[in-house]
Amino acid sequence: MASDPVSTFTILYFAAASTYTNKSSELLPAPLPLRSLFSTLESRYPNITAKVLKSCAVTINLEYVDIDFDSDGNRASDGASKYKDGVVIQVGDEVGIIPPVSSG
């Protein structure tokens, strides 16, 4: 059964994240607490946290979100961003997963 676009957000995968998921984008159910994003992705793509997400930047609607790992090793909002720990990814939002890039 396909997701209803009315109750989803778009997640965009770049570089290594796209390679790992074998997708450039997908729709995920919304609303979703930001603090649950990586556990949700981990359940869909086992080991993605250790192999890709741990070093990624995240954007919501083209704005970077400051996130860190908590004492349990889970990715969580660091509270320093305008996106506090209680932020919820809303229906229609666009989330980007952006691995580090190098230039030469």
Rank of each mutant, 00 (worst) to 15 (best):
A2P: 15
A2I: 08
A2Q: 09
S3F: 08
D4C: 11
D4F: 02
S7H: 12
S7Q: 14
S7K: 09
I11K: 09
L12G: 03
L12H: 03
F14R: 08
A16F: 10
A16L: 10
S18I: 11
N22E: 14
K23D: 08
E26I: 00
L27R: 06
P29D: 10
A30H: 13
L34T: 06
R35W: 09
S39L: 02
S39H: 07
T40P: 02
L41I: 06
L41R: 05
R44A: 12
P46K: 04
I48L: 03
A50L: 02
K51G: 03
V52F: 00
K54W: 10
C56S: 13
C56V: 08
A57T: 03
A57M: 05
T59R: 06
N61R: 14
Y64G: 07
Y64S: 12
V65S: 04
V65Y: 06
I67R: 08
D68I: 13
F69T: 00
D72A: 14
N74A: 06
R75P: 01
S77R: 10
S77D: 15
G79N: 02
V87P: 12
V88Q: 11
V88S: 09
I89D: 00
D93M: 07
E94Y: 13
G96A: 15
G96I: 12
P99L: 11
P99Q: 03
P100T: 03
V101G: 07
S102R: 02
G104C: 09
G104N: 14
